[in-house]
Design a protein around this nucleic acid. Structure first.
Lengths: 252, 252
DNA sequence: GTAATAGTGTCTTTTAGACAATATTTC
DNA sequence: GAAATATTGTCTAAAAGACACTATTAC
């Protein structure tokens, strides 16, 4: 309640700090631009694919690039703008129409080599999003050729800026993550057969897995409750297969 | 060689792009400040410790904080300043005197919540450094109470800004990393006994490991060539122990 | 019936952990 | 000799991989 504090050490000088902040004027250091870039993965036609946009303006006019945009920074110290992850969600919604907060989205890291953007110094914070194939179909990028499209990451070669580096870093990230957390479900339809899930693993890892051994691994997940059995079966060219469901979708 | 290009699609319009860049003037978007913060770990007195500085100025005057500083951004598009990791190395050298490029240093991620710095919008890119105890002793932070000091991370409670969050994220990072890469050596003296290395693992993991079982794990590393036997022995209060050495120190 | 693939079972190797036992040194 | 701890060894269980086998459906 007391507003008049003189000189104390430690935590006593709240109002002194408040006064300091009131008087504070940001210096005129050169500041970099900060952007948020997205690697939006899905699986299409049995291939790991990501969303790319074609640049309409210089630099790298006509080249493919990862979707992204500027971080919105507020006007003063009381209004400091949006959080990094919110900027990523906003971009994701803008590019794909997927405003759903249940889409997996996590930070990959910051990329800030000088010269990566020839216009000015830009530090980009990259995020990885995982979109289930069913959803990817419905997005802007899933439709006919618009400015954004999902492409097989192995068939995309020249990318603008340092986006090839970001992309390959993102691929390594999902491969690593696949071993320790259930991210495969984020790239698999709502319900799936064991073989379909195995297919997702194979696409991400880039190697063929033994059906029998994968099943054992799968059944362990069933016991742990990560996966639930449904009553439905999927018709196949031969023997029908049971459909399963990921128990706890979403993550905030 | 030809400078006169008119209108082409694809990659033909190099000089058009050059002209664009020449004419480019950065817009006056609000830009955030970008800083680099460091979590510099070492092991002291059997505890995982990190380097902290005491803030001499507002905000958070008198509080402990992680060392860090502004990213240096150049003056124009041709001179864009330093890379993020170089900024981290520079800060590391400034705070500890460890200019040695062999010190383990890797990016943790970007932290940019609005309001994390009450003065202005700041996006911080955090790095984790691992310093061997022998080296930490010799640093500025290892000496008497100067402005920078190594403190047991479990005994540090109130930190400035969102540095508590960065610190706990860094702890989780090293714990995770310990399982998949040989980072323990970065926190262990040049030569070490099996038990000493086990001690490092125990401090990072925060749990006690069985000596016999750890030995088996260790001997596998020996076979793989990660570790080399030396001829020396370490005197102990009982039976002396053999000293080993990490085969390939450094990482650029 | 035949082809295809869903699903089961077997065997081996590797790794981890619990824990007992032995060996060698300091004091 | 006693204490301490380095070092070795044993046993069990979990997990992964190679691979053969059986079952059930579409056609």
């Amino acid at each position: 309640m007391s507003q008049s504090t003189t000189r104390k050490t430690g935590k006593g000088d709240k109002s002194e700090e408040a006064a300091f902040l009131e008087a504070y004027r940001p210096g005129d250091f050169a500041r970099p631009s900060v952007t948020v870039d997205l690697v939006i993965f899905t699986i299409q036609e049995g291939a790991l694919s990501a969303l790319f946009v074609t640049r309409g303006e210089h630099p790298f006019k006509g080249a493919l690039a990862l979707p992204g945009g500027f971080l919105r920074v507020g006007k003063d110290r009381h209004e400091q703008g949006e959080d990094l992850i919110d900027a990523a969600r906003r971009e994701l919604a803008e590019e794909t129409g997927l405003g759903d907060s249940r889409i997996f989205l996590t930070q990959l890291g910051a990329f800030g080599k000088p010269g990566r953007d020839p216009r000015t110094r830009v530090v980009s914070v990259a995020y990885v999003a995982l979109v289930r194939p069913e959803l990817a179909q419905k997005t802007v990028g899933g439709g006919d050729v618009t400015h954004a499209q999902f492409l097989d990451v192995d068939k995309v070669h020249k990318l603008a800026f340092d986006h090839a580096e970001i992309l390959s870093s993102a691929r390594a990230f999902v491969r690593r993550e696949l071993m320790t957390s259930p991210i495969a479900f984020e790239l698999t339809a709502e319900t799936f057969t064991i073989q379909e899930l195995r297919g997702t693993y194979e696409v991400i890892l880039g190697e063929v897995l033994d059906p029998g051994n994968f099943r054992k691994r799968f059944l362990r997940m069933l016991e742990e409750g990560i996966i639930t059995e449904t009553r439905e079966m999927r018709r196949t060219p031969s023997k029908p297969a049971r459909l399963y469901r990921f128990a706890k979708r979403n993550r905030g």
